[in-house]
């Protein structure tokens, strides 16, 4: 039973946590890809910027002697989401819209987004330094230990993990209601399906574009903040996120928000399962193996250093066998 608890702690919960982060990032990227038709490479850095804004607000609140039952950074996350959304709209207006208006090839916009990536990275490190920071000042990270029947170990869940999972569920439900019920949400789906037709029917494309950036920016800020709450805030947070998020988008099908969630979870779980030491789970059955079979101490599909190869491998498989992704997205 101890081994099962170990499996749940190390594989299921961490898979769920990192999968939620990927999913929140991938929703934004897939909407931008579907509606504005370009791969937004600066998205992971938008997450870092969002996390840094949260950090600054949190530090201000802590300096003002504010205290709350949840981590301060979680409270700071909500204004940070608004700020990041505004930043995203400004970035679009300044750096991407001129190319769209000129009718440039989407590749040029992708390249512009690489330029924006570098600028955001440079600014974050210029003002935030290069060291890692804790998102807690004078607070402790709460850890919940839930006893598991028949096992000596407890299930372990930290407060940020719980908040992240709850936030992801609420965000996904809100997004689903928004996309299927509201006028603007329906307009977004219409533009994603056929931009020309949508414009002819009188949909205000400007509002649709703004909404896309608002959704992308808020979710990016939330994902970045909660990931750094769970681990630490690093200026190169975005480094390991970009590839898994794009893999999640393509696996889920471009332009499909539900696909992005499924893709994010798939990538998250694949990563943790690939590096998980499966020998632990086999250990209880040690005595029932034949004599010639010696159980190795470590059975993992991929060494931890090569975690990055997992999303890439899944991406390649999807590109070969099903370029539309699971949810039949666009192929561009």
């Amino acid at each position: 039973m101890n081994e099962l608890v170990f499996f749940i702690n190390k594989a299921l919960i961490s898979g769920l946590v990192i999968g939620s982060v990927y999913a929140l990032g991938a929703i934004g990227v897939t909407l931008i890809f579907g509606i504005l038709r370009f791969a937004h490479f600066a998205h992971a850095d938008l997450m870092t910027v969002g996390a840094f804004v949260s950090y600054v607000l949190m530090a201000l609140m802590a300096a003002a002697g504010f205290s709350a039952p949840v981590p301060l950074a979680f409270l700071a996350m909500f204004p940070a989401m608004v700020i990041t959304a505004l930043l995203a709209i400004w970035l679009d207006k300044t750096f991407y819209k001129p190319f769209r208006d000129r009718g440039s090839n989407p590749v040029i916009i992708v390249m512009a987004s690489l330029g924006v990536t570098l600028m955001l990275q440079g600014l974050v490190r210029l003002f935030g330094g290069t060291r890692a920071r804790s998102m807690y000042i004078g607070e402790n990270k709460d850890i919940y230990r839930i006893p598991f029947p028949g096992a000596k170990r407890d299930l372990i869940l930290t407060e940020p993990q719980l908040l992240l999972i709850i936030f992801t569920i609420i965000a996904v439900i809100t997004l689903a209601v928004f996309l299927s019920r509201s006028r603007l949400g329906k307009a977004m789906r219409a533009v994603s399906d056929n931009p020309d037709l949508a414009q002819i029917t009188g949909i205000n494309t400007k509002h649709v574009v703004w909404t896309t950036w608002v959704i992308g920016g808020t979710l990016a800020a939330a994902a970045g903040t909660m990931l750094s709450l769970d681990v630490v805030l690093k200026p190169d947070l975005s480094f390991g996120l970009l590839l898994p998020i794009f893999a999640a988008v393509i696996v889920g099908g471009i332009g499909q928000p539900y696909g992005a969630i499924a893709g994010g979870m798939l990538i998250g779980f694949s990563e943790t399962f690939a590096v998980f030491n499966w020998a632990v789970l086999l250990r209880p059955f040690r005595d029932s193996f034949p004599d010639w079979f010696e159980l190795p101490t470590k059975i993992a599909f991929v060494p931890t250093e090569y975690k990055l190869a997992v999303p890439f491998f899944i991406l390649i498989l999807v590109l070969i066998y099903r370029p539309t992704g699971i949810f039949k997205g666009k192929v561009m």
Binding site: P98, I108, M111, G115, L118, M119, G122, R125, G129, T130
Partner: peptide, 28 residues
């Protein structure tokens, strides 16, 4: 801050990014 020198070099990252966007926009 003590790590000002390492931060100063990050300025170059920013400048590279800015150059890419400016060249694409004004001198493609």
């Amino acid at each position: 801050p003590g790590d000002l020198d390492s931060r100063a070099l990050q300025m170059r990252v920013f400048v590279i990014g800015l150059t890419i966007t400016l060249v694409l926009r004004f001198a493609p």
